[in-house]
C-alpha cells in the first residue's frame, strides 16, 4: 500500500507534465491542423535560453520567464517564417518541415552548447514529504502540479472566457467564416503557435530537473509519450489531453514500480493501440470531428 501511494503521487506529477506537453500539441493542432513534430526540439531550445539566464542571474524564476517568452517567440517565428509558407490542405509538407526543423535545432544546440547533459537544479527540494511513514510528493512535485494546474486553468480561461479566446477558437474551427466576421485569422494562428510552444517549454522546464539534465534531446521522450497522450485523449480535445496525461502518467509510474522501467513504454504503446482500435478519434473526441 505504501508503495502504491508513493508510485501514485509520483505518477501524478509525471502526468501533469505529460498533460501540459500534450496540451501544447493540441493547441497547435487546433490552431493550424498540423502535428508539430518539432515541439520537443523547440521546447529544448527554450529551456537552453532559460538555463543561460538562470546561470547568468542565479534566479530560477528569471530563467522560467525567459523560457516561456523564448518558447512563445520561437513558436511565432516558426509559424511566420516556415509553416505559413507551406501549401495549405496537405499534411505532409508540415510534417517534413517540422522534422527538418528538429534536425537543425538539435544539431544547432549541440554545436552551440555541446551534446553533454547539463544538470539543472530544481527551485525546490526533490526529497519527498513523509506522511505517516509513507514517502509522498516532493515539494518540487507539488510545484510541478501547481504550475501545470495554473497554466491549464489560465489557458481554459483564455480560450473559454475572453474575446481573444473566442477568436482563437473560431479561427481554429472555421477559418473562412471567421475571416468573414473580421477575425484576423493569420494572427490567431501565429498566436496559437506562440501559446503552444510556450506551454511545451514550460513542460520541458518542469521535466528537465527531474531527469539527467539538459541536452538537445532532453524533451524527445516527453514528446513521444505526450503525442501518445494527445492521440489517446483526442487531438482536438484539451480536456482529453489533461485526463489522458494524468492517466498515462499514473500508468507509467505504476508499471515502472510494479513491473520494470522497460515495460512502461510498452504499456503506453499498448494503451495507444487499444484506443486507436476502439475509438480512433481518441477517448474524448467530439462526435463530429472536423477534418480540415
Amino acid at each position: 500500500m505504501d508503495r502504491f501511494v508513493f508510485l501514485f503521487s509520483a505518477g501524478l506529477a509525471r502526468g501533469a507534465v505529460l498533460a501540459l506537453f500534450a496540451l501544447s500539441l493540441v493547441i497547435v493542432w487546433r490552431a493550424a491542423r498540423v502535428v508539430n513534430f518539432a515541439q520537443a526540439a523547440m521546447a529544448a531550445a527554450a529551456v537552453y535560453a532559460a538555463f543561460a539566464v538562470t546561470a547568468a542571474t542565479g534566479s530560477y524564476w528569471a530563467g522560467l520567464l525567459t523560457g516561456l517568452a523564448s518558447g512563445a517567440l520561437l513558436g511565432a517565428a516558426v509559424e511566420r517564417g516556415l509553416m505559413r509558407r507551406l501549401p495549405a490542405h496537405a499534411p505532409l509538407p508540415g510534417i517534413i518541415v517540422a522534422i527538418g526543423l528538429v534536425m537543425v535545432l538539435q544539431a544547432g544546440l549541440a554545436i552551440a552548447f555541446g551534446p553533454e547533459h547539463r544538470p539543472m537544479h530544481p527551485p525546490f527540494s526533490e526529497r519527498p514529504f513523509i506522511i505517516g511513514g509513507v514517502p509522498v510528493l516532493s515539494p518540487y512535485d507539488l510545484f510541478t502540479l501547481v504550475a501545470a494546474a495554473a497554466v491549464m486553468g489560465g489557458l481554459a480561461l483564455l480560450f473559454g472566457r475572453t474575446s481573444l479566446g473566442l477568436q482563437l477558437r473560431a479561427a481554429a474551427f472555421a477559418p473562412e467564416t471567421s475571416r468573414l466576421l473580421g477575425v484576423r485569422v493569420p494572427r490567431m494562428v501565429t498566436l496559437g503557435w506562440a501559446l503552444a510552444v510556450a506551454t511545451a517549454a514550460l513542460a520541458a522546464l518542469l521535466l528537465v530537473p527531474t531527469e539527467l539534465g539538459l541536452n538537445p534531446h532532453a524533451a524527445d521522450l516527453l514528446f513521444v509519450n505526450a503525442f501518445a497522450v494527445a492521440v489517446i485523449g483526442g487531438l482536438d480535445s484539451p480536456a482529453g489531453a489533461l485526463l489522458a496525461g494524468i492517466g498515462v502518467g499514473l500508468l507509467v509510474s505504476l508499471v515502472t514500480g510494479y513491473a520494470s522501467a522497460a515495460a512502461a513504454p510498452l504499456a503506453v504503446l499498448a494503451l495507444l493501440t487499444l484506443v486507436l482500435l476502439v475509438r480512433p478519434g481518441g477517448v474524448f473526441s467530439a462526435k463530429e470531428a472536423r477534418t480540415a
Binding site: L166, F173, A174, L181
Partner: peptide, 21 residues
Amino acid sequence: PEGRSVVVELTVDENLRLGGL
C-alpha cells in the same frame, strides 16, 4: 455565404459576439 456558415462548435451567443468583436 451560401449554406450554413454558423460556427457549429460555438453557441448562438458566441457566434453573435464573434460577429461584433
